[in-house]
Amino acid sequence: MSIQVKDASIFYGDFKAVEDVSMSIKPKSVTAFIGPSGCGKSTFLRTLNRMHEVIPGAYVEGKIQIAGQDIYGPNVDPVAVRRKVGMVFQRPNPFPTMSIYDNVLAGNKLNSKRIKKSEADSIVEGALRGANLWNEVKDRLGKPGMGLSGGQQQRLCIARAIAVQPEVLLMDEPCSALDPISTAAIEDLIHELKSDYTIVIVTHNMQQAARVSDDTGFFNLKAAGQPGHLVEFNPTKQMFTKPDNPDTEAYISGRFG
């Protein structure tokens, strides 16, 4: 599903965190957001599945369409949006009371969906295979999810997100809490998931953006205390070779404040 954003401004109460972002995200591609801390990458990402409004006083102006539907339209249920647009967070957050098996099925279990055991088994296996975790955990599916390593926990969270069969997967710095080997495993996974999902990833790591993404958006602050904005949105190749904007070049080459 493609995502169209038009003049989105994002607020925390009176504070305008992001201003006038417009972009068009292609279906079944990986789009990366880069930029300095505090410029609103996470904030913007969270508006794409209506997670932003979970924070009291937070709201969005402008238009965001997914597959042609305005997700902020008057009759749109945010819960339905979130079922279509999954999310993986910066810190792995498996549910501590649940086993690995139940964590993968959490989307069904928490919604009290009754499914047959055989069907549940195949969802779990499919999602864990999809997240490249099956071989590591297939012998201990009943063990707590918290018992896995950080990298495994993050892949468990990805499995949990894809088990509800979303169309879009949002990832907010999914590797920033992980070691290089786990990071490589997740990057490989992103490559594979691209054939089924539209992926949007925030990353602090320029090489990672270059390695995994098709398009890149560079966010920046005009000045301290000002809202963040989208400086440039282009195919990743172009972005890392001859960017349109001198600020982008400065940031990418490391010559930045």
């Binding site: 599945n49 997670m51 979970v54 819960v79 339905a80 979130r82 079922r83 279509k84 999954g86 999310m87 967070f89 957050n93 549910f95 959490a106 989307g107 928490l110 919604n111 969270c157 949990r160 997100a161 509800v164």
Partner: peptide, 8 residues
């Protein structure tokens, strides 16, 4: 948030 993000 993890639960909300799963459409719960």
């Amino acid at each position: 948030e993890a639960a909300y993000a799963l459409g719960v």
